[in-house]
Every structure is written in C-alpha cells, then in structure tokens.
C-alpha cells in the first residue's frame, strides 16, 4: 500500500486525482479579519492535492490554526474562497477534525466517544451498527482492548488515539489536525505520527496538519506551507521518498527540507 502511495507522489497531478483519493482543497486569496480589526489571515492562496498530506507550520500567532478552522468551516473567511473538490456541499461528516487536546466527553466510554459523530449525524444506522463501526475504528488505532474505558482511565496517548478514531469514524474525505501531538512526549509524538500515516494509507484521505514541529511536518507531509504574520511565506514540496521511517531522518532530503523550512520560518533571505 505504501508503495502505491509512493507512486502517487511521483505522479503528483492535482487535477487528475479526485474522488478515490480524498478531496482536494483550494484556498484562493483567503483573508480573515476579526471584529477587533486583527488581520489573522491575509490573502493566503494554497492548495492541497487530493489524497495528500500538507502541514501548516509557522510561529505562534501566524494564523495557521485560523486557516485550518476556515478549511473546516468553523470560521468564515472575510475575503477569498475555499473550495473542496469534490464538493462536500455542507454535508456533515465529510471533514474530520482532531484538536490539540483530545476533547473527549468524560461521561462517555472510548467507544461511546467514537460513536458520537455517527449519532450526531442522525444516519439511518442502528446503535449496534454504530458501535460496530466505532469498534473497528478503535481497533485500527490500536485500542481494541480499551473500548469500554472512560477517558480518565486512559493515558494521554490513548485519549489522542480515541480522538483520531472519532475524527475518522464518519469516513471523511478530509482530516484536519490542529497541533494534535503538541502536548505529548517525543516518543508518543512519533508513534502517533506513524499511526496517522498508517491510517492515511488505508483510506482515501487528504490531510492538513498544523504543527510547530518542523521535523514532524517534514516526516509526515508531501507539502509544507509556511505562514508568517498571517501571510503564506512559502509552499515547499517535500522531495523525501516514500515509504518513510526513522532511517529517512539521517538522509539528505530530510535535512535539506528541514533546513529550508526552518529558514523560511525565521524569515531568512
């Protein structure tokens, strides 16, 4: 499967990849000015090819989370346009979102937290069908033995796995992650990054991830968009080959891309 993905990267043509590889995302001259007058995002134009992973990186307050929230439809741009193709047409469940904190409902078990989006969407599926779908999802994130535990009985990493399972249970075409591993230690961060890649290889999915961590962005992404002061500083296509593992970190494409992203983030000429 990873070989197939690697081939996909080699033939990276935005217009040719549509329904079977997630959705493509096109943002054209997108701006958001808050009522206080703060210009959080300023004329950002970027695109994510269908079925690819893009990281949004940049210093704190650069507008990357606001950009992600606009893609999710949680904020409306004051100017510009965001197009997701094929159109999700306002349908619930087509976008999965993973927050910085796991944000689980404490009165629900792991599996009940994962069934929540299915219940909220009021589909025709029965409760047992929803549970079965959620159980499969929890199995995929490695929590088959913890389905009936409450959030307070789970570790930080396990809670984040539940949160990822919840975001993917509706089979979305787009997965948005807002610094999902920022509160975790390095080992967990790498494990969960690997999990996201595994899940991506198993389904047609386009991923946009906000992160502070340049190494994480380089390891996981096809494309890295660097933002500074609300503007898009540069979009960098990642030349690293697939599949990726820890051995890639010692190779030139990783270190070259890492240095490039870092210098753009700093604003070096």
């Amino acid at each position: 499967m990873q070989r197939q993905q690697a081939k996909l990267i080699e033939s990276d043509h935005i217009s040719n990849q549509t329904t079977n590889t997630g959705s493509s995302i096109d943002c054209r001259c997108v701006s958001l000015v808050f009522s206080s007058g703060t210009r959080a995002v300023d004329e950002v134009t970027l695109s994510v090819p269908a079925g690819k992973i893009m990281s949004l990186v940049g210093p704190s307050g650069c507008g990357k989370t606001t950009m992600l929230r606009m893609i999710a439809g949680l904020e409306k741009p004051t100017a510009g346009e965001i197009q997701i193709t094929p159109s999700i047409d306002g349908a619930a469940g087509e976008i999965g979102f993973v927050f910085q904190q796991p944000s689980l409902l404490r009165w629900r078990t792991a599996i009940e937290n994962v069934t929540l989006p299915l219940e909220l969407m009021s589909s025709s599926a029965t409760q047992s069908q929803n549970r079965s779908t959620a159980a499969q999802m929890l199995q995929q994130v490695g929590l088959a033995d913890s389905v009936n535990l409450y959030p307070h009985q789970l570790s930080g990493g396990m809670r984040m796995r539940v949160s990822i399972a919840r975001a993917l249970v509706t089979q979305p075409k787009v997965l948005l992650l807002d610094e999902p591993f920022a509160a975790l230690d390095d080992t967990l961060r790498e494990q969960l990054g690997g999990l996201v890649l595994d899940l991506w290889t198993q389904r047609p999915l386009t991923i946009v991830m906000v992160t502070h961590n340049i190494a994480e962005a380089v390891m996981l992404s096809h494309r890295i968009a660097v933002m500074r002061n609300g503007k898009l500083a540069e979009t960098i296509d990642n030349p690293m080959p697939w599949p990726r593992d820890d051995s890639n970190r010692s190779q030139a494409p990783f270190s070259d891309t890492y240095q490039l992203v870092r210098s753009v983030m700093r604003g070096d000429d």
Binding site: G73, L74, A92, S103, L105, E119, L120, M121, S122
Partner: peptide, 23 residues
C-alpha cells in the same frame, strides 16, 4: 473544542442540549 466539534457535525440546538450541555 466541544462546541467546535458539534458545529462541525452541524448539530441542532436540541441535540446539542441533549448530548453535550445537559450531561
């Protein structure tokens, strides 16, 4: 975050009350 999650799934006011606010 929970409010955002419920917004993402375009949840009605009554369902938000039942599934989120009351519990």
């Amino acid at each position: 975050d929970m409010n955002d999650l419920f917004d993402l799934y375009k949840v009605s006011r009554a369902k938000r009350l039942q599934k989120l606010q009351i519990p």
